[in-house]
């Protein structure tokens, strides 16, 4: 199946010479949840803006559902719903009116039954006649999602959907995203919360300084780049790692009570059995063993640091 969104060598530079996107290529598959992960200013919003028509790429092409977003913008945009990062809503409007407006704007005939379904799904139905300014921040975010869904898009862009949102609402948002995926919507969300990408994405693309550093299945990413740590608790504290264990590059923690060994889970032989034997040869007594998988956060920090070293 061809990708739902095809981004080919997209560049965006501004008049002052700043390059927000430096030749980004990315395919987004039908029905997946892709998390676009990167620090603030990485180019996430610029990339979304280029796909949704808010900004013109300096060069490169983007197509949605096979329609080029510039030359066949009607076909492309009709498939796309966008939930912006900022809460942009007319304060005096009523919820139902503003959602109805969004549907019409995308060329769909009025269908209040469909809008009712969407508002119910987002727990907004009771608020349909409220003015936007009467709603809480979380409700306003839901209204933004309802507006984006009003024309039944096949691709939904969520730009930092949970920035500045409390924990409970964040979980609600994740549930909504999972529901939408069940309904067959392709979802691209940007975030700088790694736990968010880890919790809901199928694939993760890491972007920094206008470059995509990698795109990978979440699970593959975690195993491929996943470092594991073996924590060895000792019966008695030691002042330093014994010389005969120097080759293992271990570090001491917790006042000499814990030895920490980092290893790569993708290697055929991790050497753990040998290490344990050598530790007991060195006369140390083991009290307990623990292993810990690196979180996505560690992977991410590592990638960004690598890029900065290379620059």
């Amino acid at each position: 199946m061809p990708p739902m969104v095809e981004i080919t060598d997209v560049r965006k530079s501004y008049g002052d010479g700043f390059e927000a996107l430096k030749g980004v290529s990315l395919d987004i598959l039908d029905g997946e949840i892709l998390a676009l992960l990167g620090p603030n200013g990485a180019g996430k919003t610029t990339l979304i803006s280029a796909i949704c028509g808010l900004t013109q790429p300096t060069s490169g092409t983007v197509s949605v559902g096979g329609h080029d977003v510039v030359t066949e913008y009607r076909g492309a945009r009709a498939l796309v719903g966008l939930v912006p990062q900022e809460i942009n809503l007319e304060p005096f409007e009523r919820v139902m009116n503003t959602v109805r407006f969004s549907r019409g704007l995308f060329g769909k005939p009025r269908n209040d039954a469909m809008l009712e379904k969407i508002l119910r799904q987002l727990s907004l139905w009771d608020k349909r006649d409220s003015r936007i300014m009467e709603l809480s921040g979380g409700m306003k975010r839901r209204v933004l999602i309802a507006k984006a869904l009003a024309h039944e898009p096949q691709v939904l862009f969520l730009d930092e959907p949970t920035a500045g949102v409390d924990v409970e609402l964040r979980r609600d948002m994740w549930e909504i995203v999972a529901q939408l995926q069940n309904d067959g919507v392709t979802i691209i969300l940007t975030t700088h919360y790694i736990e968010e990408a880890e919790a809901i994405a199928d694939r993760i693309a890491v972007i920094n300084k206008g470059d995509i550093l990698l795109v990978e299945e979440k699970s593959a990413l975690m195993t491929r780049l996943g470092q594991k740590e073996l924590r060895i608790e000792l019966q008695e504290p030691i002042d330093r790692v014994p010389d005969i264990l120097a080759a293992w590059n271990m570090r001491l923690e917790q006042d000499g009570l814990v030895l920490v060994y980092s290893y790569d889970t993708t290697q055929d032989r991790t050497g753990i059995a040998t290490l344990i034997r050598e530790i007991s040869d060195a006369g140390l007594i083991l009290r307990d063993l623990q292993t810990r998988q690196n979180s996505l956060e560690d992977i991410f920090v590592g990638l960004v640091a690598e890029q900065e070293d290379a620059a």
Binding site: L54, R77, V80, P84, N88, P91, S102, L105, F106, K147
Partner: peptide, 17 residues
């Protein structure tokens, strides 16, 4: 001007119009 001011212009720009 108002949609520009409060930011709802994004919707006009991303719509198939």
């Amino acid at each position: 001007y108002f949609p520009k001011f409060i930011g709802t212009i994004y919707e006009l720009l991303s719509a198939p119009i």
